[in-house]
Each structure stands twice: as C-alpha cells, then as structure tokens.
Amino acid sequence: MSTSHRDGVGKPAILVTAADLAPQALELLDAYDIVYAGKNPTEQDIVSLCRDHDPVAIIVRYSKVGAAAMDAARSLKVISKHGSGTDTIDKAAAAARGIQVVAAAGANAAAVAEQAMALLLACAKSIVGLNARMHAGYWDKATHKSAELAGKTLGLVGLGAIGRKMARMADSMDMRILGYDPYATDLPGYLSRADLATIWRESDAISLHCPLTEENRNLLNAQTLAQCKRGVYVVNTARGGLVDEMALLEAIRSGQVKAAGLDSFGVEPMAAGHPFRNEPGIILSPHIGGVTQEAYVNMGIAAAKNALAALHGQA
C-alpha cells in the first residue's frame, strides 16, 4: 500500500482512493488533511487507512468502499464519488450508518460521450482493422466498404448527461435516435422515448449509458442480443456488468453483432488470456472514457464540492 499526505497536522482527514487529486480540487479542501491511498489501492488498503486516519470524508476514484471501511472510519460523514457511477460503494451499508453517498454527475459527460461516439465510429468505419492493414503494407481501397451512420437508428439505454450528449452528437449526424430511461424527463425533440424491446428490435447501433444495478446486470445477454437486428453495433462506456461478455463474444463470432466498442469490463483490469483480446470484432479501451485532463479537473472539483456540502450540512 502506497500512501502520502498533504501537510495537515491537526486537521480532519479526507481519504482519496488514488494517488492524486486535481490542484483546483485541493484548493477547495485546504481545511483538511488529504490522505492518498496510492495508484492501485485494494479494498483492505482502504479499510486500513480508514482505521489509521479516521477520515470525515472519502473521495472515491479507485477500489471499492464497503461496510468494513465505513466501520473503521468512526467520523465518516460522506463518501463522494470522483465520477458518476457509485456501484463501487456499498450504498446500503452507508445508508444504514447515516453516511451520505454523493456523485459528480455530469462532470465527465462530454468525455465519456465523445469516447462512445469514437468507439461507434471506429466500429462502423473499420478504423482499427484498416489501420493495422495499412501499417502491414496493404491498400484495401478496392475491396473494403465501411458503413454509413446517417439514416441509421441509434438506441440509447440511459438518458442522463452522457446519454443526452451522445444523442446530440448522433442527431448532428442525421441518425434516428431512440432512448430508454424510465426516469428521464424533458427529452429533446430529436430523441424518441422507446421501451427496451423496441430498442433491441429497431436499432442499428446500441450504446449503454446507465448505472449498473442488480436489476440490469447482464442487460445485454444471449436472449436480448438475439432480439437485435443482425449486424448491430454495440458500444459500452458505462459498466462492464451490463453485458454478458461470453454472450457478446458468441454474438460477434456468429455475426449477430457486427462489431463492439467496449470501454468497461466485468473484471478490471482485464485478466490475462481474456478471449476479447484475440477477437478482431471487438475494439477495446481500458475504461478511460472519462479520463481526460478536463474531466479530471471537473470531477475533482465536483467531488470536493459535494464532500464539503455534505460536511457543512448543505447536501
């Protein structure tokens, strides 16, 4: 376990489950002793640091925060996510202990939506494969035809800040857009609300933008993939648990799914020997959709502000 501190003798502690935080966020937290958990903290590392430093807040970037960490931090008031997804935090345990859980919703929306669109375009335009062929000395102009997204239907599952930005980009590309989100209101005119059955049946491309819950785990599975158009594109920049990975692999190999662009996985980092690594129909990125310099600052500031609001009784 690698830890470091910002000098804060006598100040209440805030634990950051990472090795760094944006300077703009640190300025907001000047009244607190910042304890860093290091680059790759384990869940047990977090428990030990909570026991040693008794933080009043935890800013979560990496690792899980469960009941054991909460019990070890007797003064803990708030757990603030450096991002929008709170599935790595045991929210039931936090609620039972009166600990607030807050997220930096929307702070990385532009970054993730851009990554999702980049993955979709890479799938439709065969960017990765053509690049490899060119580097190997081939010129496939006479034999290759890419797909055109204009006029095609994009199905979005989740219409929060990220899903809506993705919809806006797709609209500018003259795509038809269907969206499923039981909680979304005030949808723009170019985005048509649809149920999941319609999303599966009518979409030429499907992009996931919803949080992971026990109810939607393996949302894309053998059954739902079979309901999709043959040759559909699949993009996931949300959470790996939304996709049954072996079912997707089989659908890629059978041609039911033309190509997939994935930025999140059931187990991260991806295990050695994972079959996705040798599958040319799947484009991979290491869960970096929200990792831009701009999003790093935005998420840090939002996480810090959310923690302070809770600590000051304003949340």
Rank of each mutant, 00 (worst) to 15 (best):
T3E: 11
S4Q: 10
D7T: 11
V9K: 15
K11G: 01
T17E: 09
T17K: 11
D20N: 13
D20E: 13
A22R: 09
A25F: 11
I34Q: 14
Q44N: 14
I46P: 03
S48E: 15
S48H: 13
L49F: 07
C50M: 04
D52A: 15
H53N: 13
D54T: 11
A57Q: 12
I58T: 09
R61H: 12
S63P: 05
A68H: 04
K77H: 06
S80R: 10
K81T: 13
H82T: 14
G83H: 06
S84R: 05
T86H: 06
D87Q: 02
I89Q: 00
A92K: 15
A94W: 09
A94S: 03
R97D: 04
G98W: 03
I99Q: 05
G106Q: 02
A107C: 00
A107R: 03
A111L: 04
A113L: 00
Q115L: 03
L119I: 04
L120A: 03
L120E: 02
A124C: 08
K125R: 15
G129Q: 08
N131Y: 04
N131A: 07
G137T: 02
G137A: 08
H144L: 13
A147P: 00
E148T: 10
L154D: 05
L156K: 05
V157H: 01
G158A: 13
G160S: 07
A167Y: 05
S172G: 14
L178H: 00
L178N: 04
G179D: 01
P182W: 10
D186I: 10
L187A: 10
D195K: 02
A197F: 02
T198P: 00
W200C: 04
R201S: 10
I206M: 10
S207L: 06
P211H: 04
L212K: 06
E215Y: 09
L219I: 09
L220R: 09
A222M: 02
Q227R: 15
K229R: 15
V232Y: 11
Y233W: 12
V234G: 03
V235G: 00
N236C: 13
A238I: 08
R239F: 08
G241F: 05
V243T: 12
L248P: 11
L249Q: 06
E250P: 04
I252S: 12
R253P: 07
S254H: 08
G255P: 13
Q256W: 05
K258F: 15
A260T: 12
L262S: 05
S264Y: 00
A272N: 12
G273Q: 09
H274I: 12
P280T: 00
L284S: 03
H287A: 02
H287F: 01
I288E: 13
G289F: 03
E294G: 15
N298Q: 14
A303L: 09
K305E: 15
A315H: 07
